[in-house]
Each structure stands twice: as C-alpha cells, then as structure tokens.
C-alpha cells in the first residue's frame, strides 16, 4: 500500500504581481511544441516553461516537492504530458483550489496525488515557497509547517483505489480479477 500521508516542500505558483495563478492552461504547463514527445522521462524538463516567472521550474524543483496553484489548474487540452511532466520530475502532489476536469482525470489515472482545496484563496497569503505541507489524502487534512491545519477535499473512492493500485492500468487489472 502506498502511504496516504505525504509531505513535501511547497512551490506556490504566483504571477509576477504575487497573485496565485488561476486558469493555468495545459499549454503553459507543457507547450504544444513538445507534443511529439512520447517518452515520459523526457517530459519533465519542459514543465511550466511557458508560465511567466516559472520558466526554470524544472531546474529548481526536487523530488517529493508539492506544487500549489489557484483555480482551474490544467484548463485546456487533454494532453497527458501536462500531468506526466510533473511525475517525471518526482513531484509528490498538486494542490489547487480547483482543477480542469480532464486534467484531474489524467492525474488520477497516472497515480499523481491531486488535492482540491476549495477555500485556498481565503488563505492564499499564508503559503510560501519552501514551506512544508503535509497532506492526509484520506481525510483531506493539510498541515502547514507542522502547525496550522486546513481542510481540503479527501480523495474520492475511485481516486484512492487508482492511487493505491499505482495507475489506471494496474487498477484495471484489479477490477478484472475481482
């Protein structure tokens, strides 16, 4: 069983004015000029390189780090690469106020922890790069630097099942055997 409690160092996606980025579109996460790439190992280096202020994200992020953004993260296209580029960098989780619907599916299917945090904008000022965020995927409880706690949405049943299995394919095998 994978741990349902994860923790990591935060990258808070803010625009040049310091506002939490909303509506980050899949072309900002993984630009369409790289869409010919099919090898997940090669995808990481292009992550966020079309998002102003975050062009060098791939060089700065470390495995296990957690990425935070505002509303409708991953709007736009259905490209799986916009999820897999984070997996390829070892990103531990994505936390956002809300996600694009297709993006969320893709992340769930890849076994990447995506956590919806509906009240994020009310606390947006509190979160800073380098803070340590702990997430209880089962209950949705977030803990910032080991002190303050917040409530995000817990994983849904199917999300937890796919996450535990590893990805959609492994989950599919389990379902077929059952």
């Amino acid at each position: 069983m994978k741990p349902t409690h994860i923790s990591g160092k935060l990258w808070v996606l803010r625009d040049p004015h310091g506002q939490l980025y909303d509506d980050v579109d899949t072309d900002m996460i993984f630009h369409n000029r790289y869409l010919h790439i099919t090898d997940p190992a090669e995808m990481g280096r292009y992550a966020l390189d079309n998002l102003r202020g975050w062009e060098d994200f791939a060089q700065r992020v470390r495995p296990g780090d957690i990425v935070m953004a505002g509303r409708n993260f991953g709007a736009g296209s259905s490209r799986q690469q916009a999820v897999d580029c984070f997996l390829s960098l070892g990103v531990g989780a994505l936390v956002a106020e809300s996600f694009g619907a297709i993006y969320k599916r893709n992340a769930i299917n890849s076994g990447l922890a995506v956590v919806t945090f509906p009240s994020l904008s009310r606390h947006a000022e509190t979160f800073r790069n380098g803070d340590v965020l702990s997430i209880d995927l089962g209950s949705g409880e977030l803990q910032l630097n080991g002190v303050r706690t917040y409530r995000a949405q817990p994983f849904s049943r199917v999300q937890m099942a796919i996450y535990q299995a590893g990805d959609l394919f492994a989950y599919g095998e389990l379902v077929a055997q059952a």
């Binding site: 799986q80 299917n109 890849s110 199917v158 959609l168």
Partner: peptide
C-alpha cells in the same frame, strides 16, 4: 463526448469503457 488523456484512451481501446463521475 469527452476528451481524455492517452492513458484513459489506451484503457478505453482495450476495454471499451471508462470510469466516470
């Protein structure tokens, strides 16, 4: 109609179905 990522579609090719909320 729904757009999906390549993992979803791979699974759909093989099984003819998809999970959906």
């Amino acid at each position: 109609g729904q757009g999906m990522g390549d993992k979803d579609i791979t699974f759909a090719f093989r099984t003819g179905k998809t999970w959906i909320e």
